[in-house]
């Protein structure tokens, strides 16, 4: 069936099978491979994207369910050549190693900060508790999100 999904502010109209998972729509149909997948059971969170500004697991959503909605992926975090503070925070605080969980972590972090601009450590840990990282032990992810919270108004900090 035909769907139109707005991804990172750009509308895309495609003919898809109803069973096509949103993560495959983004990766295989649109070539947006920044969204990863790591499990089949919605436990790992590598596939998190935002639908209408709310993070969801795109491996557990059909592309047809995103018809008419706005999707934001990691590729859409950078605006007009300016990195999101969350992206800068992950660089500043070594919030990533292999980089596989990073896009999903950053999209959830963005949502958290949009709703709670000054989260404490436990709020950050809870927010990302549905997303696994096998490299960082989470410590520097938490620090990265805190960094982003503290630098939201100063986008000129060098990365």
């Amino acid at each position: 069936m035909q769907i139109t999904v707005t991804v990172n502010d750009q509308p895309y109209t495609r003919e898809v099978e109803p069973r096509l998972l949103l993560v495959h729509f983004l990766r295989d149909e649109l070539g947006l491979t920044g969204t990863h997948w790591g499990c089949d059971t919605s436990n790992c969170g590598a596939c998190v994207v935002q639908i209408d500004a709310v993070p969801v697991k795109s491996c557990t959503m059909l592309a047809v369910m995103a018809d008419g909605h706005h999707v934001t992926t990691v590729e859409g975090l950078e605006k007009n050549g300016e990195l999101d503070p969350v992206q800068k925070g992950f660089t500043e605080c070594h919030g990533l190693q292999c980089g596989f969980c990073t896009p999903g972590m950053m999209l959830t972090a963005r949502w958290l900060l949009d709703n709670n601009p000054d989260p404490d450590e436990s709020e950050i840990r809870e927010a990302i508790s549905g997303q696994l990282c096998r490299c960082t032990g989470y410590e520097n992810i938490v620090r990265s999100v805190r960094w982003a919270a503290e630098h939201t108004c100063t986008p000129e900090v060098s990365a």
Partner: peptide, 19 residues
């Protein structure tokens, strides 16, 4: 020092095998 590889990863531009 910051990692050189981060620039691509934070933009979703790493290239893993399934990419």
């Amino acid at each position: 020092m910051h990692r050189k590889e981060d620039a691509r990863f934070i933009r979703g531009r790493g290239q893993y095998v399934d990419d």
